[in-house]
Nucleic acid binder design. Structure first.
Length: 503
RNA sequence: CGGGGUGUAGCGCAGGGGGAGCGCGCUUGGUUCGGGACCAAGAGGUCGGAGGUUCAAAUCCUCUCACCCCGACCA
């Protein structure tokens, strides 16, 4: 199949149990979150999708500011020479960098179209940033002289490019949007505290805003960011039991300071390399949101992520009936607007039934139906997106004057229910395993998180990945200390890890 | 980079040497409207591109381009 999308409606959504991967694509395209662009591996984020990103940006940005960070913007282009300064770091990205070699086009001499002007070759080639560590650290070298300049706490909202072999809408695209924080500190302890502070910001954001329960922990040596001393992460479970890394925070130690020769003078007059962190989340979170909550009818948005939290569907035959409904809503619009965001769908070109399905597809958390019969009784029908038709609580009759209080409560209930549901799903799909054979036997028919004592080497991890497809997603905090025996080597260990197949 | 698939109307597809079609959507008019309405009349295409075979190519041959999906690799 080629480009999907268009005006098909949710009738065309592939059920999850039939083809999870196709279901995901259907949600993205039919809910008009994204569309394929002319460039392979690149996507267009449509208004419905971008609205979600804007919600994420707003919430996260406020949290970054509240923890003392400021925004800045660094250039898209990085001189090629910068990338050779940090060999370990380069290793991770060199194979997927886009390179700018020329700066001008011209008409082809033979009139066949536009060609690259061979005389406009760049002296030094430019890399399109796959991440901004190098360009940022080249500036930090100029800006940091003294311990008084520290800590330096910057974040940037930007696009980056990684030339991936295999792409997937939102989850892995050639170009994507993200935020990248880059901080510099006077001590290792400060950098460590910063990395953990941000990890906690990410956890709170995921759980409180995205209604996405996450495991918080540390990456193993083989899974950590090349160039980091260690990497922390939040990991979420999708509805197919696969893990998705939803955010990372790195303690970079002095690696980048040494690569870019960034030193500062201490209080006692000595000179020391600065300590660093970096951290980021991307538009991938939109993919996480979709795969955590949505169903076979379409997108399901947590209320705090919904641009339109409630849609009002008027039921009417005659214009006079519509007018009466509009007046009833109009009288209360200001107070409603203060309590929740809503939109009236008063199109007279489609039937109410079509609107119901349409707004469900788009993920709107609450639907308020108002018809002549309701109006006569001074009530409305409030319908929850998170419950199936016929389920207890799906539909409620609410007096119009109580909508202002009822809807916000319902939104809170939905937000909480989505989280609880996702957490219950994760719990039900998390398995304690004592032996490697046990995991091997179960992982195919029961995808999920496998919790095991493990102290194997990077080679052991590679072998497990080759044999089962599973990797160590994280070493969760608060799950350590207990003694056990490694499920592979049989050695005594207190390290408990989560194995899972991952996106 | 391997494997698979697809390029024909906005979307989904059929057609396989001689009139470019169907469904949905779109436009206009009318009847409808509490779970994806109906009738009628319309608009809309260099059949991905190039070359070849032929009296004649969407269709056969050669080459090419592009995108999608699955895998390896990676956020």
């Amino acid at each position: 199949m080629q480009h999907t999308g268009g005006n098909m409606g949710s009738e065309g959504i592939t059920p999850r149990d039939e083809d999870y991967s196709q279901w995901y694509i259907d949600i993205c395209t039919k809910a008009e979150l994204a569309d394929y662009s002319a460039v392979k591996g690149c996507m267009v984020i449509r208004p419905n999708g971008y609205a979600i990103w804007e919600k994420m940006q707003r919430a996260l940005d406020d949290m970054f500011k509240a923890t003392g960070h400021r925004n800045a913007y660094f250039p898209l282009f990085v001189p090629k020479s910068f990338l050779s300064r940090e060999a370990e770091h380069v290793e991770g990205f060199a194979k997927e960098c886009a390179v700018v070699t020329h700066y001008r086009l011209m008409n082809a001499p033979d009139g066949s179209g536009i060609v690259v002007d061979p005389s406009a070759k760049l002296e030094e080639e430019l890399i399109v940033r796959p991440t901004s560590e190098t360009i940022i650290w080249s500036m930090y070298k100029k800006w940091i002289q003294s311990y008084r300049d520290l800590p330096l706490l910057l974040n940037q909202w930007a696009n980056v490019v990684r030339w991936e072999m295999r792409t997937r809408l939102f989850l892995r695209t050639t170009e994507f949007l993200w935020q990248e924080g880059h901080t510099a500190h006077a001590s290792s302890e400060d950098a460590e505290a910063e990395a953990l502070r941000i990890l906690e910001v990410y956890r709170r954001f995921a759980e409180e805003w995205l209604a996405l329960p996450v495991l918080v922990g540390r990456k193993t040596e083989s899974e950590k960011f090349a160039g980091a001393q260690h990497t922390y992460c939040i990991e979420a479970m999708m509805q197919d039991g696969k893990a998705l890394q939803a955010g990372t925070s790195h303690h970079l130690g002095q690696n980048f300071a040494k690569a870019f020769d960034v030193t500062f003078q201490t209080e006692t007059g000595t000179r020391e390399y600065v300590y660093a962190t970096s951290w980021g989340v991307s538009t991938r979170l939109i993919g996480a949101l979709i795969m955590a909550h949505s169903d076979d009818h379409g997108l399901v948005l947590p209320p705090r992520m919904a641009d339109i939290q409630a849609v009002i569907v008027p039921i009417f035959k005659k214009q006079a009936e519509l007018q009466a409904i509009q007046e009833a809503v109009g009288r209360r619009a200001d107070s409603w607007r203060d309590a929740f965001s809503f939109q009236m769908d008063d199109r007279d070109t489609v039937t109410p039934g079509f609107k119901f399905a349409d707004w469900e597809l788009k993920g709107t958390p609450v639907r308020i139906e108002i018809g002549p019969r309701d109006l006569a009784k001074g009530q409305a029908v409030v319908v929850r997106r998170d419950l199936e038709r016929g389920q207890e609580g799906h539909k409620t009759f609410v007096p119009l004057d109580e909508i202002v209080a009822h809807v916000p409560r319902t939104l809170d209930t939905i937000q909480r229910n989505l989280f609880d549901r996702a957490l219950a799903f994760r719990t039900a799909h998390t398995y304690d395993v004592d032996t490697y054979d046990e995991m091997k036997a179960r992982i195919e028919e029961a995808p999920g998180f496998f919790r095991a004592f493990f102290d194997g080497s990077a080679e052991d991890e590679a072998r497990i990945k080759a044999e089962t497809g599973a990797t160590v997603r994280c070493i969760p905090f608060g799950d350590q200390g207990e003694r056990g025996t490694c499920f592979l080597t049989g050695r005594a260990t207190n390290q408990r890890v989560i194995f899972a197949k991952a996106y």
